[in-house]
């Protein structure tokens, strides 16, 4: 296979990865919570999109905002009711709590939706350019993923909520003194994290089959991308996602597909020790 093709595959995958990780990174960066629910949020988004498409015949792209809204409300409620109560506790507590919540959500999904792999089939054909062959639905997925990531970036940069989130991240106490309701910002941030996960899941379901068995895989990707790119910033997640996509693509080609994931994790462990702020991370935020 030629290098250009591998690179394109990697970038397409990487854009999806960035979209998967950006919500996780935001929650970790702002709330200092490792959100073990993230993988299940992604799958829930994917499943909801599939059901709307399969049973109601709706266009998945039109369904995406609705799915994102549902996930936002779920995330907001979970943070408001549960996680906010222990948000300042040590990582052991918050991580264990989100893991417990994840077990509940996972169980609900496997019982009501079953673990059958599901995929929205769009049948858009393929395009060929400079000898590089890519299915159109993947390009669409990449475009949507990048669009969503860019949207989040604009919201974080330009909106009042976005600025408030950044302020809370920088200094919780000072933000509170400036009249920002910190707990509400936490809930909104967690909601946005879930929203991005749901949207990423919806995009993913248009490109690859999704099943509840993948929750751990997605969560693992989010870990790796956050560490590679650096925490809590949209550009960090984008760089980390694209880097991981390209690395996995090349590693899969050179070492065989079964080693592609291992390479990502090993790289992450090395970076954790050598440069825990990630490639574009800012020092002092951890």
């Amino acid at each position: 296979m030629d290098i250009l093709q591998i690179l394109v595959n990697g970038i397409v995958l990487g854009a999806l990865y960035a979209c998967i990780a950006v919500g996780f990174s935001l929650v970790w960066g702002v709330l200092n919570v490792i959100n073990m629910l993230h993988g299940s949020f992604i799958i829930l988004g994917g499943y909801l999109t599939f059901f709307a498409w399969f049973y109601l015949g709706l266009n998945p792209i039109l369904v995406l905002p609705a799915v994102a809204l549902v996930l936002y409300l779920l995330g907001f409620a979970l943070q408001y009711l549960f996680i906010n109560k222990v948000v300042t506790a040590p990582v052991l507590t918050t991580l264990t709590l989100t893991f417990g919540l994840d077990m509940i959500l996972y169980n609900l999904m496997t019982v009501y939706f079953t673990a059958t792999p599901r995929r929205v089939t769009l049948d858009l054909g393929i395009v060929e350019f400079l000898g590089v062959v890519t299915p159109v639905d993947r390009l669409l997925g990449m475009g949507l993923a990048l669009l969503l990531t860019a949207l989040l970036y604009l919201v974080m940069r330009g909106s009042t909520i976005g600025r408030a989130i950044v302020a809370v991240r920088m200094d919780r106490q000072a933000a509170a003194l400036m009249g920002i309701r910190v707990n509400r910002i936490y809930a909104i941030t967690f909601g946005i994290g879930a929203l991005m996960a749901g949207a990423a899941g919806a995009v993913f379901a248009m490109v690859f089959p999704v099943t509840t068995n993948l929750t751990g895989v997605f969560l693992g990707k989010a870990f790796v991308i956050c560490v590679i790119g650096g925490l809590g910033s949209v550009p960090g997640a984008l760089v980390g996602g694209l880097a991981l996509g390209v690395i996995e693509s090349f590693a899969g080609f050179l070492l065989g597909p079964q080693h592609a994931i291992t390479v990502g994790f090993v790289l992450m462990l090395i970076l954790l020790v050598v440069r825990p702020t990630g490639l574009v991370g800012v020092k002092g935020y951890e």
Partner: peptide, 11 residues
């Protein structure tokens, strides 16, 4: 429901 119940215990 055993997984959900374990999650409930954790919460």
């Amino acid at each position: 429901w055993n997984r959900a119940i374990l999650g409930g215990i954790i919460v």
